[in-house]
């Protein structure tokens, strides 16, 4: 755990330094009397860098925390698959439209991740997509990506 904390602390301080550099070079800092667009990001960058360095120093001085018992069983492949499906869903939203992509997304989720039977999968996908259509398109008229098949 301490190793990951150290990596996070290093990323934090490096991120802070990069933001300071960007704010200083690309944006204008102005001065404390006449602040410009870059001053707040610059100060936040300073804050991040200082907190990150302080964190690294404290990690050097503190002992590794004791193991707090057995960790809950984690299934790494399921969140990865979920994320992958979400990326494809985002891409499909623009390509084929919201309704079609939602229908395909729910089917893919139930078959690929949950290994659900076809009948249940189709019922969930149809009901879910219909509910989304009724709520967002029909009732609330929320802007959604247009349907490719609607021409």
């Amino acid at each position: 755990m301490k190793k990951y904390e150290r990596i996070t602390a290093i990323i934090t301080s490096l991120g802070g330094v990069w933001i300071m550099y960007y704010a200083w070079r690309t944006l204008k800092l102005g001065s404390i009397h006449v602040p410009d667009a870059g001053l707040l990001p610059f100060l936040c960058g300073v804050g991040l860098a200082v907190l990150g360095i302080a964190w690294i120093l404290i990690l050097q001085w503190t002992k590794e925390a004791e193991n707090e018992g057995p960790a809950e069983q984690r299934l790494w492949h399921r969140p990865v698959l979920s994320l992958l499906l979400m990326v494809l869903y985002g891409w499909a939203m623009e390509s084929v439209g919201y309704i079609t992509s939602t229908f395909i997304f729910v089917i893919a989720w139930q078959k690929v991740i949950e290994h659900e039977k076809w009948l249940k999968t189709m019922i969930i996908a149809l009901l879910g997509t219909f509910a989304m259509y009724a709520l967002f398109v029909y009732l609330l008229k929320v802007p959604i990506p247009p349907e490719f098949f609607a021409g």
Partner: peptide, 27 residues
């Protein structure tokens, strides 16, 4: 959960997209 989770994601996606009508917000 496996019935609810994809629906929650679909809701999140349309919420993000509907704010400005831009796919960038979904990313």
């Amino acid at each position: 959960n496996h019935y609810l989770m994809p629906i929650i994601l679909v809701l999140c996606a349309i919420g993000a997209y509907g704010d400005n009508g831009a796919l960038f917000d979904v990313w």
